[in-house]
Design a protein around this nucleic acid. Structure first.
Length: 603
DNA sequence: TTAGGGTTAG
């Protein structure tokens, strides 16, 4: 800006301070450039006796790009219409940014007033004759779908005399962002033009809705059609890989990024770190993180969270300290991850320390999530009364997450009375969450209260709540295979089941005793015989043993939490077959090696 | 001139 101010003073000396052409260029730089200064642009503008539409448009565009200041765009537009001498009319460059500014609400909330103003702007588009301008119409589509007014967005789209790739993409994006992924996909397939933004909108939609296989299928289609991934599509694809635990595909994307020279900005780097962590390769995440020349806050957060997920609590705390040494201010997410790292690794004193420290030293306020972590930390380690005390002292009333953490702790420590009380409360708060019923039923079962256990299961059935079937995924040679507990749909299921039997026979000599207590009341319960023996993770491990060379690591990703019996079996298999097994469950990783697990049986 | 990506406890 210093150069610009000097340039400005030169223009003034030359007597050009009221010249639209000269001042227009100056304003353009101040409003549109990354290093510009919108308020300076506004000051220059205020000195101009007769600004022209170019000047107005440029300022409107500048303000429309700053969500907090977008209301200035509307004010400028009104001012432009009110100007006399000379009378001004908006042109086709006026509306796209003006419409955009209608979409940006200053506080994240869209009020009726915003929508009303947007409709008035739409009326002006019609009045001034820009119904055939593709840019303006595209902006209107985006405005309506951004508010969730999909029918109106669709109407604009349908009435356009000509459409371009942005029109199609905006519509796809509108459906996709509202979770109407099927509708989005229909438009996507029908589109006469598809650009990388459209591919990305579609993949991101699938990822957001948890439809990872479909996201993945699109990635394969993109490779097949030799479509180039740009940094946005790559980030979405990495998120799909992270969700599925598809390390090989994720690495293909990272290789592609390196080869194509796409700039690794903060968001993309974070997506890479997240992919490595969630695919079980925390070492590669660390290596990648170490190689970054600039690290965004989200990258630090993601790396600390990744270490937490893998039970490397001390490493996570050390990384947090390194962050402090580099004078990077942590945010609430950083601290959620630090506390969760302490909880997963049983670092009780450290957790307590950072809980106070975050507020005192960094001024980060305690949120619900921080209390949730602390209740988990205290409860898991058996300090149930301390956890209760913390809940009682919370400044806000605890949400179902915080109570759920206490409930989980009751299950671990067989705190039947408190568990029953909290469990019932949590079930009523989230009556559709099957996991809560199962946990309470198992808590009753663990102390031999079979009738109560059956009553909870009946309650769940009566309410029509279904448990998601246990499902494990294993990626071999880039292909993802899926196993459902007790399922026999796999073409090689005969061999796989035989392998499971062989596995279990082998580990019996190492002292394996099936965890029979929970057989009938286990979260993986299935109608078939010996349900416990054919849990999805056992099937996936058997498949891994069949398909990989001796000594190769086996990576499995599971949709639910791993049960006690499968945990025990995995430990023994890692010893008997001399294999490392990395298993991701619903909330953390287990590294099985030589008969031990990285979680230290603390999960 | 218009459309897109990341990190959050249980």
């Amino acid at each position: 800006m210093a150069d610009i101010k000097q340039f400005h003073s030169q223009l003034i000396r030359l007597g050009l301070s009221t010249d639209n052409d000269a001042m227009g260029r100056l304003i353009k730089f101040c409003s549109v450039s990354e290093t510009g200064d919108l308020y300076y642009a506004l000051k220059v503008f205020e000195q101009m006796p007769h600004p022209d539409p170019f000047v107005y448009n440029t300022l409107i565009r500048g303000f429309s790009r700053a969500p907090q200041l977008a209301h200035h765009s509307a004010l400028l537009y009104i001012q432009m219409l009110q100007q006399e001498q000379p009378l001004l009319q908006p042109n086709k460059f006026t509306f796209p940014p003006l419409v955009k500014s209608c979409c940006c609400s200053c506080c994240g909330e869209i009020g009726d007033a915003h929508v009303e103003f947007g409709r008035q702007v739409h009326a002006h588009v019609v009045k001034f004759g820009f119904c055939e301008d593709v840019f303006t119409q595209n902006s209107l589509i985006d405005m309506y779908v951004g508010w969730g007014l999909l029918v109106e967005g669709r109407r604009v789209f349908d009435e356009m005399p000509e459409r371009d790739v942005v029109s199609w993409t905006s519509l796809v994006n509108g459906y996709s962002r509202r979770g109407l992924v099927d509708e989005a996909f229909e438009v996507f397939e029908a589109a006469s033009e598809r650009g990388s933004v459209g591919w990305n909108a579609m993949v991101a939609g699938f990822v957001r809705s948890g439809r990872l296989r479909e996201a993945f299928a699109l990635l394969e289609r993109m490779w097949a059609e030799e479509k180039k991934l740009d940094k946005y599509a790559a980030a979405s694809m990495l998120a799909a890989c992270a969700g599925l635990g598809a390390l090989e595909q994720g690495e293909l994307i990272v290789d592609y990024l390196k080869k194509s020279g796409i700039e690794l900005d903060g968001k993309l780097s974070t997506a890479v770190i997240d992919m490595y962590c969630k695919c079980g390769s925390v070492d590669k995440a660390l290596e990648f993180f170490a190689g970054l020349s600039r690290r965004a806050l989200s990258s630090w957060n993601c790396m600390i969270g990744g270490l937490a997920m893998h039970g490397q609590g001390e490493a996570a705390v050390n990384l947090f300290r390194e962050m402090e040494r580099e004078k990077i201010a942590p945010d609430n997410i950083t601290l959620v991850n630090v506390l969760s790292a302490c909880a997963h690794a049983g670092l009780v004193e450290e957790g307590k320390h950072y809980f106070h420290y975050m507020k005192e030293v960094h001024g980060v306020e305690h949120t619900m999530e921080h209390f949730g972590c602390m209740v988990d930390l205290l409860g898991r380690s058996g300090r149930l009364s301390e956890a209760r005390k913390l809940i009682d002292e919370m400044p806000m009333s605890p949400d179902v997450g915080v109570l759920g953490a206490l409930f989980g702790a009751c299950k671990i420590h067989k705190e039947i009375e408190l568990g029953e009380q909290i469990g019932r409360r949590v079930i009523e708060l989230e009556p559709q969450n099957s996991g809560r019923y199962i946990l309470l039923a198992n808590l009753y079962a663990s102390v031999g209260r079979w009738d109560d256990a059956a009553e909870v299961r009946k309650l769940m059935n009566d309410r029509g709540v279904k448990k998601a079937p246990g499902c494990s995924i294993i990626e071999l040679d880039g292909a993802v295979s899926e196993f459902i507990a007790g399922g026999r749909t796999h073409p090689q299921s005969k061999e796989i089941y035989a392998k499971v039997d062989e596995m279990l026979e082998c580990i019996r000599s190492e002292g394996y005793v099936p965890d029979k207590d929970t057989v009938l009341h286990d979260i993986e319960e299935d109608d078939r015989e010996n349900p416990l023996y054919y849990h999805s993770e056992k099937l996936a491990i058997a498949f891994g043993l069949l398909k990989t060379t001796p000594g190769a690591m086996i990576r499995i990703s599971k949709n639910l939490r791993v049960c006690k019996d499968c945990h025990q079996v995995s430990k023994l298999i890692s010893k008997v077959y001399d294999r490392e097994i990395i298993m991701r469950d619903r909330n953390r990783f287990h590294h099985f090696k030589k008969g031990e697990c990285s979680c230290g049986d603390y999960w």
